[in-house]
Nucleic acid binder design. Structure first.
Lengths: 242, 242
DNA sequence: CAAATAGTGTCTGTTAGACACTATATG
DNA sequence: CATATAGTGTCTAACAGACACTATTTG
């Protein structure tokens, strides 16, 4: 390798094209909660590879328009589904020689949460975009290693349900405590004591009562709350039981 | 873009060299505990860019020899320092257009822990390898965004000290409870109640008494323990106070 | 009124904090 | 013996679980 006196001349001759790097993608796993169940947003691929299979709404980093990995995640969600998620957090990075048939590839996965809204395919590389029930994915063949990625995201979200109210980002802006509790119950796969659940949220002062109530026709109406600004960052010192 | 009938012909014409991907590196943050303080292993760069600056012992993914990102992390640690760490966990992925002067770059950071041992530079791209006291890094200019990466790793390790005994991987195979407690105290930046600390570890049955004791000359000798196989995976349901 | 769902009062159980105590080493 | 460090006994405080109770809605 040639030696250079100074960094400036080193950088002047440096050309990233001289080196082959792994394929570099970003894959958001977008969850929501609707009709009492957890849903994941998937898109049907209209191009090779893995054409016609459902997978995550991710894609390549655009070295011109993206300044950061989070930019890529937001852009891909926007392009493929028209969605802008209020919660986006890096999950894990999956990289290996074999996960993509095109060669060594790396994907940075993000967990995203948002209130349910209808969605549709937005660009030509996507035939369709659809919310799938999490449980239904067991019977499907998904693109690449996307099943493993979704499984990892789901597991992390389960953990967060034990010590935070991050799952609330999967609800509409205004929601009731029974709704939030049920979402946590879905994530944890077990019933929770409503007294415990409500008490810890109230004592940590994470929510603001809007003054409104909502009834679904049966029984006493529930108070509607919205999250305080930083409620998603709060961590309880003691977990709910597993 | 040309259309292909089947995936095989698509893959046959696909050439990763046709696309420019970000630079792709892996950076392990290797911690140990020695002489009552937390240390980080850094190497002095002998090549551009950032020549002569100290940074993490990372490097490019080798698409031939590495099968996974963890392979890269282990290989780089081995090459640059001769070390094989008993604890290695993915930390976070840092990627942006500006973090490396050569262009858009992504690094997958790993946290590694090991018992203290002497180390030395192992290859020509490294002038020197050295354990630095974590506190000393404040006064240094480090390569790239490595200060931020180390800070993130340190913060994650602090979190783990609250609900696990993962930090024990930074100790020798046999260690005493007062040693482990002091390491946690360094990580948390506050004194802990020894009764609480010992009680939770004993009740979770995470350690095995070796039968040996060790005295440092002063006072009653402490019992030496080693970690049970899966002790690093145990998570206490209730955190220590912050 | 009954049925259904929201929300509370209050007791128990678990586990961390506080801190004084005992145990075992050295010199 | 004094000193130093390891390790224990035990009370308190915080907070989740259990579960019966009250509250508010519809029909």
């Amino acid at each position: 390798m040639t030696q250079f006196d100074d960094e400036a001349s080193f950088l002047a001759q440096y050309n990233a094209r001289d080196f082959v790097a792994p394929l570099m993608t970003v894959d958001p796993v977008l969850f929501t909660y609707h009709e009492a169940s957890l849903k994941v947003l998937l898109v049907e691929r209209s191009n090779h590879p893995e054409r016609r299979l459902w997978g995550l709404p991710g894609g390549f980093v655009d070295m011109v328009s993206d300044q950061s990995l989070e930019d890529t995640a937001r852009r891909k969600l926007q392009e493929k589904t028209g969605i802008n998620a209020p919660y986006l957090e890096q999950l894990y990075t999956f990289g290996s020689a074999t996960r993509d048939k095109r060669g060594w590839s790396v994907t940075v996965a993000y967990t995203a949460l948002m209130a349910y809204q209808e969605c549709a395919a937005h660009i030509e590389t996507v035939r369709d975009a659809k919310w799938w029930e999490f449980e239904a994915l067991n019977d499907m063949t998904l693109a690449f290693d996307h099943r493993e990625i979704i499984q990892t995201a789901r597991e992390r979200l389960r953990q967060k349900a034990l010590y935070s109210i991050v799952p609330a980002y999967a609800l509409p802006e205004k929601f009731t405590l029974p709704e939030l509790q049920h979402l946590h119950e879905v994530l944890l796969g077990k019933a929770l004591q409503k007294k415990s659940f409500r008490r810890r949220i109230e004592e940590a002062a994470l929510l603001i009562a809007t003054g409104e109530k909502r009834s679904d026709g049966n029984g006493r109406p529930a108070v509607l709350y919205r999250m305080k600004e930083d409620a998603g960052r709060h961590m309880f010192v003691r977990n709910l039981e597993e």
